[in-house]
Design a protein around this nucleic acid. Sequence first.
DNA 1: AATGAATGAGTCTTCATTCAT
DNA 2: CATGAATGAAGACTCATTCAT
Lengths: 180, 180, 180, 180
Amino acid sequence: MTSTRIKLAIEAGYLFQKKGYNGVGLSEILRKAGVPKGSLYHHFPNGKADLALAAADLASAEVLRIINASFDGAADYRDGVTTFCHKLAKYFDIHEGNVGCPVSATLLGGQDDDAFRDALDSIFTGWMAQIAAHAVRFGQSETQANHSARRLFLSLEGSWTLARARRDSDIMRALPDLVC
Amino acid sequence: MTSTRIKLAIEAGYLFQKKGYNGVGLSEILRKAGVPKGSLYHHFPNGKADLALAAADLASAEVLRIINASFDGAADYRDGVTTFCHKLAKYFDIHEGNVGCPVSATLLGGQDDDAFRDALDSIFTGWMAQIAAHAVRFGQSETQANHSARRLFLSLEGSWTLARARRDSDIMRALPDLVC
Amino acid sequence: MTSTRIKLAIEAGYLFQKKGYNGVGLSEILRKAGVPKGSLYHHFPNGKADLALAAADLASAEVLRIINASFDGAADYRDGVTTFCHKLAKYFDIHEGNVGCPVSATLLGGQDDDAFRDALDSIFTGWMAQIAAHAVRFGQSETQANHSARRLFLSLEGSWTLARARRDSDIMRALPDLVC
Amino acid sequence: MTSTRIKLAIEAGYLFQKKGYNGVGLSEILRKAGVPKGSLYHHFPNGKADLALAAADLASAEVLRIINASFDGAADYRDGVTTFCHKLAKYFDIHEGNVGCPVSATLLGGQDDDAFRDALDSIFTGWMAQIAAHAVRFGQSETQANHSARRLFLSLEGSWTLARARRDSDIMRALPDLVC
DNA sequence: AATGAATGAGTCTTCATTCAT
DNA sequence: CATGAATGAAGACTCATTCAT
């Protein structure tokens, strides 16, 4: 049994990723999650903004999980990158080629809120730190590793955008050649 | 005397870039452009969508201009990349660190429209082609040049996002070290 | 205390009857009913169309009530018809000679919607069935009764139009001589 | 070569008949008639209202033409009625069962204008006079003829409405049995 | 803890008309 | 005569939120 709170955050995350923060109405989220109107403000006192932050947290955790799953059994750093990119490409395809980066679509989709940008910054920093840690584990120096992580992250973020414009995830699968 | 049509597209472009397609209301655009409500549909019969496409075209042309201005007087490819990234960083700073890529914020900001994605794809393709042409001019092979252009483009697109989360354009200025 | 829902349907019905579906704006209905804008879509999720269907149902029930009130105490069929026509004429006069048939003005006033026409058909069929039932009660055969009901209904519907053009309900009062 | 004025009146008449006066925008009429926006007020200084009156006149003339064509070669009055009703039913079918009486849909479709009701009254009076004249020609007394004409007219007007609700013109073809 | 009604500012768009060229 | 630009009020509808139950 999934709690109402989590059901809401999951559904919201999926919709924000597809249509952006301002492209989704609370009524749609509520309807698709099967949650009555009045319930939302019990679980998310600050309403839509709280919901977006929760959704971004959930999505971020999932990305971290994918990062670790990709690098843990890898032969070397490049092998980890390759697995990671293919996993994301597959994820993109499952969503019919019409989703953006789950956290930036949610937290930058038209909101000027400082709290959103702070949250986004720390999420991104966390991803890069995790990638860098794996790079170190595979023998890179601290400096090299940060460099590698940043290079991968930036290209990846760019790939979400280009892949969406093209409805084609190939660009993600081509990333290892570009950044390793 | 700037025509009503262009006044609207410019103002719309600026606002979309800041708040995304769904984050901006027509009333705000109209008010800031000093154009009465009924006039919009004369110049843009399909309304907001037409306006967004026009705004994206304008923004794209400006980016192409910056690309050429950066590479034309450059000593070598890397020098051109450096100038380009610094120009964009400056542009970002002028807008108070709170703007996204002008075309993707406009055309992906929460719209499912196929026409938007097609337009975005061809704009991106145009940018990469231009960059690649300069790389060829500086001695790279066709293959190398496409590789370089794609690497620059993806990282750049990612930088818009990260810079915005951090309210800091340094990441853009660091790009040459990452992609050259 | 009349519920918001019913207050809306009554006011809408009155206005549609006078100006037709497309001749009435929601804002006018809301204003005259003293109901705030946002409330409407609670009670009528499909908006104006739902409101029109509800208004037509209300009006239809009222007509059925008048039919029964006219025939129940009548001496014979023709006597019932006479009372019925005079009641409608009076109703027409009260509205200053400027209303159409309450259901056709509402449901045919410029709407292409299939649901509207289906609803209208079943309302009309209900009226004719009721009139025919009374005719049978007064001794007519099933066939004769259907014939009578149809003849009365069609002329009556035509009378709404002619009376309105003439601002004069006499044509309604003359109906018994025409159809009996 | 049809003049702009007539082209407009014809197209307007067709649209008003289908959607009512308030259900049709000038832009649609202009577009379908292939007439530029600014031209309308040259031919119809009072705009939409003038256009509706002209359209109703055209439609009325056509109905008179049909009346005469039906009765002129008829064997007796009832034969003329039958032909007339069948012609109208055919006309209704051609328009896909979704048109109202061409003049009342145009002039009562949600307009409170006195000029409209006066025009409508005189059009209806003209139709009845014409039918009555034919009835006299076939041997009816003046009084009988007026009675017959009124009976036919009212039922016919009612038939437009019922036929539309049912998307079925059979009711029109059944009229002779009802009114003769 | 949960909920459905209420709210009014907001959304994008179309309206019939006027006017300068 | 002809026309495209201009106009702002009005159109139907959705928004995120509050509140009494």
